[in-house]
Amino acid sequence: MEDHTEHHPNYVLIWFILVILTIISILIGKYIDNHVLKVTLLFVNAAIKAVLVALNFMHLKFEKVVVISLVVVPLTLFILLIFGLMPDTLSTIKW
């Protein structure tokens, strides 16, 4: 039943990249003080790692559109929830 044509990306290389990215994020955490820059860099770093794991380890690269939409739609809803709530919390921020 399983289509054997599915080739496997080089997992160990992907793993190595992920470890490097984690170390980078730890360094970012330690040495960058500007709060906004730090948070955005960390978020971008985490997003790259997540995409790497999803595409290669979870074989999203070889999946059909149905499954990819099952991942993309909840992520957009998550972003939507954040931006839907943001103006509400911004108005009560006590910086």
Binding site: L70, P74, F78, L85, I93
Partner: peptide
């Protein structure tokens, strides 16, 4: 995958509330 998509939204709700609390 269907189950994982509902989990994404579950953790999304939690992490979202956490981010918003963090701001305030």
């Amino acid at each position: 995958w269907v189950f994982l998509s509902s989990e994404i939204v579950l953790f999304g709700g939690l992490i979202g509330s956490c981010i918003l609390f963090r701001l305030t």
